[in-house]
């Protein structure tokens, strides 16, 4: 904010002397719009592709077939340990109970039996819903106590016939399912995202508050 009595002060707005001939206003507006449109396209369409790397699972897995074969749903394989903690993805030993030898005709099963069961090597599954190390999540509290269904957070993966491509955020290392598939973070279903805000929203609705830090962080 200058108060100097500069000679330009005496000129009325718009009357500034056009010492050089520049591009006409229209061109400038056009360039502005082009810039705007290009960056919009980049931000919405290209950026998400760049942000995530695609990784394939070691081999495909059909949840549906397994669901039809077991008695107690997801918990048949995704078990709680005796101490109440949740074991997550089944271990090789669990799978090998049935798949000691190749049973069906699927190529994937063959891979599993020949490469993993035979060599006693745990399958390096890429876990879509893997939370970062700083998160403590109690499946017991949600599934056993609050009697929530797996689907509510995990969607209908239990009915899927094959595994989708695993997308990993190149910066954070998170699975894309944490942020959600929609780059803008818009959710249609309860399982469309697994960020802290998603947890918080549900907790606020059902528990009245997000709860203390340690409830979900370790």
């Amino acid at each position: 904010m200058s108060t100097s009595n500069h000679e330009a002060d005496s000129l009325a707005p718009g009357e500034a002397p056009d010492r050089k001939q520049g591009a006409p206003g229209g061109v400038i507006v056009l360039f502005f719009i082009v810039g705007f449109a290009l960056s919009m396209a980049f931000g919405w369409l290209v950026f998400p592709k760049l942000l995530y790397s695609e990784k394939n699972q070691p081999f495909d897995f059909n949840h549906k077939i397994h669901m039809d074969l077991v008695d107690s749903g997801c918990e048949s394989c995704h078990v709680f340990r005796e101490d109440g903690t949740y074991a997550g993805v089944p271990t090789l030993a669990q799978c090998a109970d049935c798949h000691q030898d190749v049973q069906g005709e699927s190529k994937d099963e063959e891979v599993f039996v020949n490469e993993y069961v035979a060599n006693e090597k745990e399958v390096p599954w890429l876990i879509y819903s893997r939370q970062p190390d700083c998160v403590f999540f109690s499946h017991a509290a949600h599934v056993k106590m609050a009697e929530m269904e797996c689907k509510e957070c995990h969607g209908d993966i239990g009915e899927s016939e094959s595994l989708k491509v695993y997308r990993e955020n190149r910066i954070t290392g998170y699975s894309q399912d944490i942020w959600g598939e929609n780059i803008a973070g818009i959710r249609k279903n309860t399982w469309d995202g697994m960020k802290m805000t998603d947890c918080g929203k549900c907790h606020e609705e059902r528990m009245g508050s997000k709860g203390p830090c340690f409830q979900c962080h370790k």
């Binding site: 100097s4 500069h6 330009a8 707005p13 718009g14 500034a16 056009d18 010492r19």
Partner: peptide, 17 residues
């Protein structure tokens, strides 16, 4: 506005205004 009062910048009508 003080920066805009620099003689050179002030030549641009937009900045002047």
């Amino acid at each position: 506005p003080l920066i805009l009062e620099n003689g050179k910048i002030d030549e641009v009508p937009f900045f002047h205004n």
